[in-house]
Structures are given as C-alpha cells and as structure tokens.
Design a protein around this nucleic acid. Structure first.
Lengths: 201, 201
DNA sequence: AGATTAATGGCACTGAGGGACAAAAAGAAG
DNA sequence: CTTCTTTTTGTCCCTCAGTGCCATTAATCT
C-alpha cells in the first residue's frame, strides 16, 4: 500500500520519522524564501531530512502540501450542516455553515492567511485547488439535496454549491487585499452585494 | 521570441508547417482513443508530423490544446458587453452576454460538446481551466466596474464575475448529463433557481 | 530470538516543459 | 543568381514531478 503513516492508529511496524505538520512547516518556510515554483521536492525533503520518495508518500503531490489536512476539516463542515435545525431556512443554514467553517479555519491556524495567500496567488496552486473546492461544493450540494428531496447532482444543489464557493472566493480575494477587514464580514457583504445586484430589476 | 506562427500576419521567413486547428484536431483524435492523460506530447507531435519542441511552441502546454483559441473569443465577449445600451439593467446585460457567448461557441463549433466534455470531466483539465475562467471572469468584472463606477478588483465586480461563472458551470455540468436539454435554457434555469433559493427567506 | 508489520530510501523510468543553437525555407536586396 | 534577412523548425540536453519496485530498517508480537 501507498498508505503513509497511519497517524497514531497502529503501533506496529517502523514508526514514522516525520509528520504532515512538520512537512508543512518546512514547506512554507521554503515557499516563503524561494516561492512555490522555485522550491523543488528535493529541497523540501532535504529540509525535513527525509527522502523525496518518502515525502511523496505523505503528500500525493507538491500541490497538496499547502492544503494540509483539508479533506479532514470537511467532516466538521458536514457535521455543522446536518446539526442545523430543519426550521432554519435553507439559504440561512448554508450561509451560517460557510461562515462557521471559515471562522474555524481562522482560529485553528494563525497562519491561515499565509496559506490562503499562497494558494490564491500562485497560478499552479489556483489550478490545483479546484479539486479541493470540488469536495467542498459537494458537501453543500449533498445538504441542499437532502433538504429539498433532490439528488446532489441535480441542477439546484450544484448551483448552490457553485455560488456558495463563488461568494467565499471573492470574499477571500478581497480579504487578502484588505487585511484590516474581517473575513466573515466580507462573506456577508459579498452575499448582500449579490442580492442587490440580482434585485436591481 | 517564443512567438509561434504569426498566422498569416507576416509573409516573411519560413512558413509554418502546421496550424493550431490541425494540432487541435489531431489532439482530439488521440484523446478520444487513449484519453487525455494517456496521450503523450510525443504522440500528438507524431500524429501532426512535427517535433515535440515545435508542438510546444504552438501551445504552451498540453493542457492548453483542448481550449483552442479561447482567449481570442473573449474579445467578442467584451464587444457584446460594451455594445449593450446603458439603459439595460446591469444584471440583464451580463446575463444576456453570457447567453450570447455560449450560444456563439455552440454554433461556431459543432464539436463544442466534446470539448467541454473533455475539459469538465478530466481532472487535469478541470484544474488547468481555472486560469481560463479567470480571464472570463475578469471581462465581467471589468464591465460591472465600468457600469457602477468601481474598480474591477472591488468586491462587487469580482463577486458578479465569480457568480456568473458559477451559474454557467453548473449549467454546463448539467448539460453534459442531459444532452436533450438546451444549454441556454439551463443557464436561465440555474439563474432562476438561485433567485428562488435566495428569496426563500 | 524470530516472525510480523509498516515505514523508509535508493534506483530507475516516464513525461512535461524549457534553453540554446544550428539548419531550413521563404522573401528582399544587390 | 547570389547573398542577406527573417521566421520557423528540429535536435540536443537539461530539470523537475511523479511512480513502480525492492531491499532495508525499526518497531511490536509470539
């Protein structure tokens, strides 16, 4: 198996010599110095003190390093949604969950800004991020489908997923340009802007 | 310069031995047979009858081949927008231009479905496409900024660009799953769905 | 001590992409 | 008709990402 460290699961076999967190720290250190594209896998491996082959068992690709353990944080996102009382209107439930998700990320990682800065300004990473965004959109689409009695691949659930991501991304982009503003306020503002844009009939 | 064929511009120097269109046809022929990831640049070059190095002078990367001359079609998109009378409400102007842009694409290339199928279902291409979508969003953001007296990198113009793309992409995805439906109807339906989603307060 | 399990690291390979430079193929100038 | 200029092409060579294979290492379990 290509399965890397089981992460504390099994106590059997040779113990891992490093961790995702350590690799991430080393990566960001180098990215800050030489930029993302200017940093080779060999350089990161050397910084951590492991071989390139091992590095690629912790992360499937160089592009995955800045994203960290994103897939795992989606579990919390899902939990927030399903825990929402059903009498909360759908669009409010989704909006609140989106806010909560990003507030959590912010609190959990003080370096979240650097991470998003790197992801949103490096073309290579912008491109690769679509795959991650896809998982995020899927969570929303599944919840919308559940609430409306539709399937996740129907038009409306997918549209809500896409639009929620659109709002979040424009808020993030603006947030990077304006460090003094609060991300959750910007998500609200983006939503309000969309409403007024659509409502100006 | 890495500038490939000037495409009929100058009659000086050695004439190009091939064209973007020819490469594109050869590419799609092979992609259909072996899939996108299963097709090497060497194979495409051989199919066209040129060297790999020359192929990479026509297209910056393998990922760019399915997109064809997309950047050029954006000029028409821009033209449609600026030609819109200013008394047309902004959201209608943008919506109409989005419809016109996609209707044009459809008419111009009967193989547009195959192209979009490839782009939207191949992970490698999904990722790379973000860069193209970025140019498209920028066109909308610039127009919205123009109409509202804002800058293209302000929050609302960017949000409208992001959301317009979101609607178009969910319509496209649904269109691929349901060949019997018309793309422009789906864009309308996605928009209507968003309005009802947001309006269910 | 020996067997089992799981991680590591070395090696070799494919494939994308780019830099440098000479050769080819056209028109223009003498 | 030859020479110069311009532009494209092809060859060679290099770097880097990513994968498969396999021996090695370091732990636990019996």
């Amino acid at each position: 198996m290509a399965t890397p460290p089981a992460h504390g699961a099994s106590l059997l076999g040779r113990p891992p010599v490093t961790s995702h967190a350590e690799i991430e720290r080393a990566g960001f250190r180098l990215f800050a110095q030489r930029g993302f594209d200017g940093t080779t896998l060999d350089a990161i491996a050397a910084e951590v003190g492991i071989s390139r082959r091992t590095l690629l068992r912790y992360y499937d690709s160089k592009n995955d390093i800045p994203w960290g353990r994103f897939s795992e944080t989606l579990d919390g996102f899902r939990a927030t949604l399903v825990a929402t009382p059903v009498d909360v209107p759908l669009h409010e439930a989704v909006h609140a969950a989106v806010l909560a998700f990003n507030r959590f990320d912010l609190d959990a990682h003080p370096s979240h800004r650097e991470r998003m800065q790197l992801i949103l300004t490096t073309p290579t990473l912008q491109a690769h991020s679509v795959l991650r965004y896809g998982e995020w959109r899927q969570v929303i689409a599944e919840y919308v489908a559940l609430r409306l009695g539709l399937r996740p691949d129907d038009l409306l659930p997918r549209t809500v997923g896409q639009v929620s991501l659109a709002l979040t991304l424009s808020a993030y982009t603006h947030w990077l340009d304006h460090p003094e503003l609060a991300l959750h306020d910007l998500i609200d503002t983006a939503m309000a802007g969309l409403r007024s844009y659509l409502g100006s009939a």
